[in-house]
Each structure stands twice: as structure tokens, then as C-alpha cells.
Nucleic acid binder design. Structure first.
Lengths: 251, 251
DNA sequence: CGCTTACTTGAGTCTGGTCAAACGGGGTGG
DNA sequence: CCACCCCGTTTGACCAGACTCAAGTAAGCG
């Protein structure tokens, strides 16, 4: 198996971490980079549609996403699915499984994805040796909590069209934050089934709501996805202020 | 102002923290207790119906709940309210405001509440000096995330009666975990309006759903609250497995 | 070329929302 | 002490947003 002594076969060594290139992410000290490089176990590249983490599993790894999109979801025994959030580059996933024992949700990719792999068991040494990084882990978890609060508000209290408007604005806002569109009109790789399962709506009703936004020219449909044309309009329709993130940590 | 040198006026010094009495919470080393005692700024007792933390505020404090119930919620500009979770003894609140700048949600009490007050600015020294406690903070945050995922699944994908069943079972399960009922039939101090705002339902429909559970003898109404009679029944109705927590950290 | 996956659309139904009114207990001011 | 009021709850009538069922289109793929 690949050893981390030389890291020779790494496509993305920590010193040249692709996330560092984006000015969204905070700079790491060289000591931190050195630690991360030892903490890192390898890289994982998965296809579109792959299940990276499965509910109920005990996976000994943690991951940071380097490239690609995905979503995090839960299932009811009879198959009803709820997508609870989306994951993007810079997101740390699998932490909850590390802390609670087994995974309480699954994560599936929406595009090919590259992940940075860490050892669950080494997490405590990160806490011991790098308080700043430990703080960042907590920051990331608190941010996730914050997004979930917003999602819950949306599903619980917004109407169908407001929910959809919120979701689209939210995804574009997050995607822009990590430079996923770089200037191009924001394109989302999610099907209407994904949207329905995020908003707590049926597929049919989602489609009808979707059409309304297309008619209003806030949205253009695309094969298995859509292009968002008017983020401002969507935000005001959803009565969403947006989240103000300037720089953020990552692991 | 009260100084923490003597802590003379504290009703609940850390050495005799009331949470330590419950075997749910993990034991702290005496070094940890010493640190917590310095980290602690004081105690806060608030009435029922008080707003402990307000959305948009920049509160320089963090709190751990020692006694009492409350709920955490968000508002839409037009007044629609979504309760995102409930808070109980042992819960750490205000952390998100500490990390993100200003609070993204509010917290209101459902009973008189006593809180342990910490200084936001000192959090980093906790991370530096006590990796174990820092880890616990992350653990608590991840647990909150886990509960939110469950709530979102519920609001998004369960029917009205399933949602109500889930909520009641969830609250009883959490309350038992921290010894809130100690053997007595579990009594919840929430009005139907709170339930409605948690489940994303209207008050009227909540009442009709509530009645169905009363008719099924799973629930007994009470002045501004209810007694849960059949937690097992509620869990199976909601198709909820329950969460298995043995011991947990606290701060 | 047939199969599968995603999207559309219409018809009919039902869960859950809105409006309105009334009840009951606890607190309060006259 | 009592009338009044407020809050939480309850119920009925009616309405609408969202669901299910069903069928059809279009694009991509082996």
C-alpha cells in the first residue's frame, strides 16, 4: 500500500494544495502545512454517482473535498429520502462519523470528485498539536450547523417557490465562494429529483414550481441541471439576506 | 464586578457542577475542572419566556445550561417562525455566534433557566491548553448537527402525525438522557404553537394531529404541555430508531 | 433501435392551510 | 368578589397547495 513517507505519488501535495490557491481560504503556516502533510493519508478519486460515505458505516477516514460536488442525505426505512445539504470543495466530511461512531447520513457525488483522505484516529493528535487547526474544525462544524438551520427554516416555513428560490441562491452563493463558476453563469449539476428531495416536495410539484421560475427568466433549464440567471431576484423572492463569508478555514 | 479569584458567590462551583452528578456526562479530571473554573465568568439565572440570545446580536459570552428548557429558532422577515431545536441541561449555546460573528438564531426559555457563563475571547485558550475539552466542544457541535439532520428529515419527509410522533419521542429521549424526568412520566412544557413552529405545520392542523395521538392514548394533554404515555409507540409510528448515547462530554 | 433516465403535463384527490368562532382557566383591576 | 380579558386550545367549514396517478416526450447510450 502507498506509504506517506515520500508522498511521491501525490498529485496534490499539501504544499501545493489546490484549495490554497483560492483566496477564500485562509493561509496556513508552513508548520501547519507540514502537519497536514503527515496527517494526510492519501487521495481518493471517485466517479459521479458514487457513494463516498454510507449511513450506518464505520469508516476510519475523514475527508476534505478538493474537487467536485456532492450531497448529504438521510433515508427513512420505506425509502423516502431527504437531502440535508450539499458538499463542495473545502468541506470536511465524515467528521460526524468519527465522533459518534457510525455515520448517520450518506454522501453521494454529483460529479467526479477528488478527496484528501485523513485518518480518523489521528484527529486527536491534531487537537493536541495544533489548536488553531482544531479551532478550524469546530468552525467548519458550526458553519454546517448554520446552513442546516437555514435549510430547516426553508423547508419548515417557506412556500414551494420560496424554497426553490432559496435553494438555488444558496447553492450559487456557496459555489461562488469556492470559485466553482469562475465568472461563468452559475450552472448547477442537480436534477429536479435532487431538488425535490432537498425541499421536501414531490417531483411533480417541483417541476411545476421550477417552470414558474423559468417563465420568470430567473432560471434556464439544462440537461440534468440548470443555469441560474438572476441570483438577486431569487434572494429577494426567498427573503434571504445571504451569508457573508469572507475568508474561511479549511483542513 | 464579581471577580473569579474566590468564586465566593457562586451557587454552583465547577468542583460541584450539578451536571457532574448525572452519570450521563463524562467525568472531568481535576486539572480540567480547575481550568473550567477559571474559564467560567459567572452564573446567569433567567425567567421563563426570556430571550437568552437574540438573532443578529454580538454577545461576548458562551453558555452551558445547568437547569431548564428552551428552544432555538429563526424568523423570516414577515414573522414566520421556525424552531430548529430545543436546548436542555448540558447543552453549550452561543458558540456559533462566537465563531461566525453574530448570532444567526435566537434562544428563548421554556422554564426558568440557570446558565454557566463563559467568555467568548477565552475560547482559544481552551483550545490551546486543553485539547480534550476542545475535542468535546467539537463533539457537542457535531451532535447538534446530527439532531438537525434528523429534524430536517422529519420536516421534509414525514407526514404530520409522524412528525409529531418523532418530535415527542425525540424530546422525551433527550430529556431522559439528562435526567429531566427522573422516573416520573415525561412531561413536556411546550404549547401546541411551539409544536407547530417546530414541525412546519399550522396551529390548527397541529391541534387536530395532536388529538389523534391523544385518542390513541399515546399522549395526555396538560395545561401548556403534555405527558407522553407511549414513547415506544411514538417511535415506531415515526419509524425512528432512537439515538444511542451512553456518556457524553460537556463543557 | 430499443432501453433507460429525466422532464412535462393534465386530471383528480387529499393533506394541510385559512378563517371564524367559541371554550375554559388564570390573572387582574374595579 | 366578580367581570373581563388574555392565552392556549378546540372545532367546523371551506379552500388551496401539494400529492398521486398516468401518460407522453426527449435525449443519451449500449
Amino acid at each position: 500500500m502507498a506509504q506517506q513517507s515520500a508522498h511521491s505519488e501525490r498529485k496534490y501535495p499539501c504544499e501545493r494544495c489546490p484549495l490554497q490557491r483560492s483566496k477564500t481560504f485562509r493561509d496556513m503556516t508552513s508548520r501547519e502545512i507540514g502537519f497536514m502533510s503527515r496527517f494526510k493519508r492519501g487521495e481518493l478519486a471517485v466517479d459521479k454517482g458514487a457513494i463516498v460515505l454510507a449511513e450506518g458505516a464505520r469508516n476510519p477516514h475523514l475527508y476534505t473535498i478538493l474537487f467536485g460536488w456532492g450531497f448529504r442525505y438521510k433515508l427513512l426505512p420505506d425509502g423516502r429520502r431527504q437531502i440535508v445539504n450539499y458538499v463542495m470543495p473545502g468541506d470536511l466530511i465524515g467528521l460526524q462519523g468519527s465522533l459518534m461512531g457510525e455515520m448517520q447520513h450518506s454522501i453521494e457525488t454529483l460529479s467526479p470528485m477528488t478527496l484528501c483522505v485523513f485518518e480518523r484516529g489521528e484527529l486527536m493528535s491534531l487537537y493536541r498539536e495544533h489548536a488553531d487547526l482544531a479551532f478550524d474544525v469546530t468552525w467548519l462544524t458550526a458553519r454546517e450547523e448554520c446552513m442546516l438551520d437555514e435549510n430547516l427554516l426553508s423547508v419548515g416555513r417557506r412556500t414551494a417557490i420560496e424554497r426553490l428560490a432559496y435553494l438555488l441562491a444558496f447553492l450559487v452563493s456557496r459555489g461562488r465562494g469556492v470559485g466553482l463558476f469562475n465568472g461563468a453563469p452559475p450552472q448547477l449539476p442537480i436534477t429536479q429529483q435532487h431538488i425535490a428531495d432537498t425541499l421536501g416536495l414531490s417531483l411533480v410539484h417541483t417541476n411545476k414550481t421550477f417552470r414558474k421560475l423559468v417563465d420568470r427568466k430567473m432560471l434556464r433549464p439544462l440537461d440534468r441541471g440548470c443555469v441560474v440567471l438572476d441570483v438577486e431576484g431569487l434572494m429577494s423572492l426567498a427573503r434571504w439576506e445571504g451569508s457573508n463569508e469572507d475568508t474561511r478555514p479549511f483542513i
